[in-house]
Design a protein around this nucleic acid. Structure first.
Lengths: 344, 344
DNA sequence: GCAAAAGTGTTGTTGTTACACCCATGT
DNA sequence: ACATGGGTGTAACAACAACACTTTTGC
């Protein structure tokens, strides 16, 4: 090795995923620069072009500080700074490191470490200091025309999804998509969404576009933003005086729950239709399989039950994550192969 | 981000694995420096101490050049320079990136990307320019007293083994441990070895030591080095004149095979005993399961058959790797749980 | 001939799927 | 009352482990 070894820039990038109503979503930001770094031909050559502020996105991330304890600390910090989302370092999963020559056309050579983060439900992301705008976006929409990801972030995202799919079989990370206490159908939704072939790595561009259009009107732009917007709350309290009275007499905790329930119901009514980009798993068999894996999940002792998200149906038992770090045996769910396509 | 982002050293480290006679082995080197960087208390604090040239080892690896196309290229180059082992970039698997502050006490801050490499049978490693010595060593022996790995290479190695175990059930990488053409028992050996609890991540230090001593006399120091040494060949040809004559009349290809057969037989006689750090899988069921996975492996058409490694028994059908990039369904092998220990 | 390994066949057991059925809740 | 989802039961089916048996080699 030479006396003065070469120096690199090291950055941490984050794939912050969440699952909402059958759609896998990811946090993206828009960098301040007027130039966007896009791999136009998808051939590995990234070049700076004039930014399309509607359709050019990047994963949140940035430089690691030399005094920072570990790279994942930088990942957490950058996600907070750029999107306002707060995650625990312990829950991060390293996806891989990307260091191809030319992956960043700007000065110096940059190596990026990509991390996965999970959010039960990502609150409205705030534009931070490092980005003009930040938002949660459906993965399918992001990967479809006319949207583009900067640098090699599309590769990172696809690798990350592949990794999640692998890990939910052998580890309990699927619970990271849920709140600390969850019902079996909430957990099942995670698998149903991830199992859908729209997220297959080797799917055709054409087909992905099709799935993207199915859910286009259903993402953060209208429905999800609306859900957490103040206007909904105002509409509720203004429009229904008797409700306002009822709320005033409730404890803070109960009030929150009540409001969130109303907001959810309202949003559901507003939603054009459920996009349902997901497989269907038999609830009964899923439940048996999941509770049969030692220490995967455990019942919440005081028999608190939660009504289902759709509002109707029998309230379900609550569970929380168990002590297992790996699923043994791994969770195998049937992959329904309607067309028994021959061996390729 | 500041105007002048911080700079890091970036290195590539390699975990080059091979499986021989029921023992998982890894390539290690001894750095030239008189000081070794050891995490003495295994608490993350690496310090420079006087080198014990018998028991202090490091994974092969080194700095990435700024003009190098990708990090894995550097990995291949470093492995060649330090051990003489040649691997294909395409066969590398990225394990992870290690960037904790203080993982390298020498000047500057270093981030290391760890890669897995596979060798069907690693030839005698040559000491390269960057290392006083390089050798292939049993993983168990390396992890047991009094041997120590430098930096955080022990963590890397254990992570790598865990990754291999995960990947052999979902991808065809197990074939990377075999020659291009292999018999089913050669493939089965890979799984039998990797399945052994000696390679469990959460095994006690005490127990690992026990397994290490079982195979101590059986590693590269005597048996494996001997196998490929010239002395064996000389002993054969000198000691048996009639054999020499027979060899002289054979084609180059047949000669090679004949010699390798003799050398293997000889080495087996020399070996104290088979260490057998492996599980036993039912050959019949294993074969059925493996050939049942679409495109995992395929028969070599011209019905070449190879006699088993032990010399006796019916010659087996040869196979080679198929076109599948993932095993679907994944390969599930029974984990015989003799002690039905309760849920932890 | 005997030992050892490759293959093929078979059987009892285990695990899984696909339903039917009852329960508890909101509208 | 009815729709909707939670949860239990179960019969038909598929997958698998275990073991017996035949084949083909080296010694």
């Amino acid at each position: 090795m030479s006396a003065r070894p070469p120096q690199f820039h090291v950055t941490a990038d984050l794939i912050a995923l969440t699952i909402t109503d059958g759609v896998l979503q990811v946090a993206v930001v828009q960098r301040k620069s007027d130039l966007a770094c896009i791999d136009i031909e998808r051939n590995g050559i990234v070049q700076e072009i004039r930014r399309d502020s509607e359709h050019h996105w990047a994963l949140p991330g940035g430089h690691v500080n030399v005094n920072e304890n570990d790279i994942d600390h930088a990942a957490v910090r950058e996600l907070r700074e750029e999107t306002g989302i707060e995650v625990d370092v312990k829950s991060l999963v390293q996806v891989g490191t990307y260091g191809k020559l030319g992956r960043d056309p700007r000065s110096g050579r940059t190596v990026s470490v990509a991390y996965l983060a999970f959010q039960p439900k990502i609150a409205n992301p705030n534009a931070g200091s490092d980005a003009k705008q930040a938002k949660i976006m459906s993965v399918l929409e992001l990967l479809a025309e006319p949207n583009r990801l900067e640098f090699d972030h599309e590769t990172m995202l696809i690798d990350a999804i592949q990794r999640v799919r692998d890990m939910v079989i052998t580890t309990p990370i699927a619970t990271n998509f849920c709140a600390p206490e969850f019902t079996l159908s909430e957990l099942r939704e995670v698998y149903e969404v991830l199992w859908h072939r729209a997220y297959d790595k080797e799917i055709s561009h054409r087909e992905r576009q099709k799935y993207a259009s199915e859910i286009r009107e259903y993402t953060s732009d209208n429905y999800f933003q609306l859900l957490s917007s103040m206007r909904v709350y105002e509409r509720i309290t203004h429009g229904m005086p008797q409700l306002k009275f009822e709320l005033a007499s409730m404890s803070n905790r109960a009030l929150e729950e009540k409001i969130s329930k109303i907001v959810i119901n309202d949003a559901r009514r507003q939603a054009p239709k459920n996009p349902a980009i997901r497989e269907r798993l038999d609830p009964a068999n899923f439940a048996r399989k999941v509770v049969g894996i030692p220490n995967f999940i455990e019942e919440v002792p005081q028999s608190g039950k939660r009504s289902s998200l759709t509002g109707t149906g029998r309230p379900a038992q609550l569970y929380r994550r168990g002590s297992a770090e790996r699923l043994d045996p791994p969770l195998r769910l049937r992959v329904k192969k309607d067309p028994p396509k021959d061996a390729r």
